[in-house]
Design a protein around this nucleic acid. Structure first.
Lengths: 195, 195
DNA sequence: GACAGAATAGCACGATCGTGCTATTCATGG
DNA sequence: CCATGAATAGCACGATCGTGCTATTCTGTC
């Protein structure tokens, strides 16, 4: 890896952490530069604009999400076990990255009213994630673990709701029972889907 | 109402709308002033600091939430009907205000990593809302509409999850089926709680 | 080890930020 | 209608923003 590419990665890593706290819009090139002991223009040169930087952070985050959540989930046995793994891995993922919260939850809330490439990309990533959840549920149906009248997309929708509320209970409310509530909701959802 | 108080209200109204789009942190006094055709200092004089402005916006939003959501909800018959009213009124509420999305959902996501008075206030308001939902569920139990082993707080938690995911499906994903999915999830939740 | 190109720094720009201070205009009670 | 205080404007401040341009330093190749 060339020198430039290496520092680019370092920048992205730090920017990603920062963005998960202050949002993609709250990022400042100056602060980023001084935190990394780079000159503002030196840092800027790696990207052509702030928006390009933001898009690259998004891709960086997506890549990490694949590594830390999607990949391990796909190693679980298909069907209900994999749905369970998805939920568990998602719960752990912000902690694993020792961030404040899930980068994508923050980005989604921030960008939902700002049309543009950033918003499109975030929406696309969320759709991918939902589709993956739906697919796992679909498999659970064909494996005859879930009832055949379960709507996989509705299942993904409902499961995603539990993830979002868990994020709020954890991050905003700092509720110590957040995880317990999360699992109770999840178990009820799965139980209702089981044949 | 004195002149000053009147413009203060006008400012808050506009600021509230603006904040629901760009967030409380994304607000700028300069932009606010020029949009309202006021001088920056003239506007600023109504508040002693930006944070004071933000806190007043929060209170303004809370007041509107009471008027548009809480009050009509309490007019529905207690028990399941009231839970249903709460859900329905919440779904309608951002539309009613013709905002992008729910002000509080945006504020919650933005502030969950920023300790301070703002965060505390938002968390308090969310807790109040959750408590109200739990109380309605509790009443549904004593009215013998819900099973006695239903956990009211878990119910509120789960219901709030549906609200959050609906917000995402509507705002970020622009999914035309968002409301349909919302109601399906809600009906399943209520059906599971019914005796 | 010199040379070429990549990587980084330095500096400047116009704009905007939040916030004070002072002046001016306005509303309102006597 | 006048006087007084409230409401608003004008202006300035230091800081920071994103982004260019030019110079310097460093890296990797022959």
């Amino acid at each position: 890896m060339s020198k430039g590419e290496l520092t680019r990665q370092t920048i992205l890593e730090h920017a990603y952490t920062q963005a998960s706290r202050v949002g993609l819009g709250g990022l400042s090139i100056g602060q980023l530069a001084s935190a990394l002991e780079l000159s503002k223009s030196g840092l800027f040169a790696h990207f052509q604009s702030k928006e390009a930087l933001q898009l690259q952070i998004l891709d960086y985050a997506a890549q990490r999400f694949v590594e830390r959540v999607i990949r391990p989930t796909l190693q679980a046995p298909r069907g209900e076990a994999r749905i369970r793994a998805a939920f568990e891995n998602w719960l752990k993922w912000p902690t694993k990255e020792d961030l404040g919260g899930c980068f994508f939850v923050a980005a989604a809330a921030e960008l939902d009213d700002h049309p543009g490439a950033l918003r499109d990309r975030v929406a696309e990533l969320q759709r991918d994630w939902l589709e993956m959840l739906a697919n796992i549920a679909r498999t659970a149906i064909t494996e005859q673990q879930f009832r055949s009248d379960v709507d996989p997309e509705q299942f993904a929708h409902d499961m995603y709701g539990i993830m979002l509320v868990t994020h709020q209970f954890t991050r905003l409310l700092r509720d110590p029972k957040a995880n317990e509530r999360a699992w109770r909701a999840f178990e009820a959802l799965v139980a209702a889907a089981r044949r």
